[in-house]
Amino acid sequence: MYPRNFKLIWPSSLEEALEAVEAGAVPLAGGQSLIPMMKLRLIAPESVVYLGAIRDLDYIKELNDKFAIGALTTHSRIASELREGSPLISKAASEIGDVQVRNMGTIGGSVAHADPAADYPAALIALGAVIRAVSKNGIREIPAERFFTGPYQTALDHGELVMEVVVPKTACSVGYAKFTRIATDFAIAAVAVRLSAHDGVVEDISIGISGVFAHPIRARWIEDALIGKKLADEVLSRAINAEVVHEVISDPRASKEFRLKAFRAMARRAILEAYENSKV
């Protein structure tokens, strides 16, 4: 399958890339979502600007209690280099697609593409990560919780690119659970948890969810039900089984009812994983 031909813009700097994006060119990073979409002719852009030409957006920088991850850093690199420093983002990166996809796909591309069932959003929301967007007007910080606004929709404005993603080094305990039909598929439900506990009592918890709703969200209703409590089975069950006000999606991979069950099972698994880790 050939994509329709297009005008290729090969930028020599971020400024040149931003100008092209401002003028309407579609940004191409690792291409693992964009190229399949172009091959299927779901989109046929007039012009494409190749961000891979800008090598200085591929980095992981340590800043005090955080890591700044450049937009063009591959999932493979994040999975292997942040395993100790920020295990939740590393785990999410290692769950994406397969080896070949992780070697090309980038965090900036994945986040900007904003598939509602992608692995990163759940983890970024749970971590309280910040997406730093750049445009000709400067740099803007967007909390992950407000970044994903709809299916394949983000808080990015026209002319803005993801420049880097800032994640905290996790002193807290984390958990991640994902349910898929087959190994390489997107999640039917994925839940990421960051938790701190003292003597078994949950002091702080944040939960990110992908795949279940029209866009990734933070599960505040579960968090609120768990803070200040020991996670006895009935406490956890009540929190997880509470009514969900958001509309659960239904698609050929899973009905609404099945997806809700999968979500509850994954939530239990991820919360208990983080809770167990907090005791070590």
Partner: peptide
């Protein structure tokens, strides 16, 4: 590193 050549320009 292994990549899928059908999904690279």
């Amino acid at each position: 590193r292994p990549v899928k050549s059908c999904t690279l320009f």
